[in-house]
Design a protein around this nucleic acid. Sequence first.
DNA 1: TTTGTATATTGCAATATTACGATAAAAATC
DNA 2: GATTTTTATCGTAATATTGCAATATACAAA
Lengths: 108, 108
Amino acid sequence: MGATKTEHFTDKQNEIALLTKALGHPARIAIVEYLISANNCICGDIVNELPLAQPTVSQHLKELKNADLIKGTIEGNAICYCINEKSIEKIIDYFLKIATKLKNKQCC
Amino acid sequence: MGATKTEHFTDKQNEIALLTKALGHPARIAIVEYLISANNCICGDIVNELPLAQPTVSQHLKELKNADLIKGTIEGNAICYCINEKSIEKIIDYFLKIATKLKNKQCC
DNA sequence: TTTGTATATTGCAATATTACGATAAAAATC
DNA sequence: GATTTTTATCGTAATATTGCAATATACAAA
C-alpha cells in the first residue's frame, strides 16, 4: 500500500514519527547542520552547500518546513532559514524520557 | 528515482539519518514505547499490542533491528526484545549538541 | 508425531519518496 | 524594460515503503 495508518496511533506517536521521519534523510541532516554552522540565520546559499540539484534541495527544505523543524523568512530575493528550537527540544525531551525509563530496566 | 544518495554525505550524517528514519513511523514509535513499558524485556505479544497484521509488525521489528535500535534474543518459540540503549543515547547526544549550538544563535 | 503458537519470509498491490530537467515566479540590478 | 539571481513548482522516472494474505519455519506441548 505505501500509506501509513496514522489513525491507529496516538497524536504524540504520530508527532514524534513525523519529526523523526523528516530528519530521516542525510540531506536534511546536512541542511540542519549547515543552519547551525553560522551565528545567525542562513540567507541563501543552501543549494551550493549540498551535492544535490536545486529542485531536490528545495523539496527537502519544504519537508523540514512541513515538519516545523525550520522556519523561513523572505528577505529580498533570498530566503533566510533557521532551525525551530522548539521542535529540536521536543525530540530531546521525548528520547530523554525513554532513556530515563531504560535506566530502571534490565535487558535479557 | 527514490534511492537516497548516501555517498555524498558524511558517515555521521548517514548514521543519524538511518536512526531517525527507522523511528519515522508511528508503529515503530509504538513498538519502542511498548518495549519500555515493562521492567524487563518483552517476550512475545508485540503483535497483539499493535493495530497491524503480524507480517507488518514483523517487518517493522526488522527495520528497528537493522538500525540497531532494538535487540532480539530467541527464547523458546518466543522472541525477547529490548531497546538498545546506546542508539537512543546517540540520538540524544546528537540533538543535544544541536540545541547547545542553537543557544548561541539569533534567528531572524 | 501431531497440534498449536510465535515469528519470519515471500509475493504483491498501492502509495510515497527521491531526484532532476524544465519552467515559473519574485525581487534586485543593470 | 531586460537581465540576473534565487527559490518554488510541475512533471516524470526510478526506487522505496507500507501493508497484508499466504506460506514457511521453529519450537513447545499434548
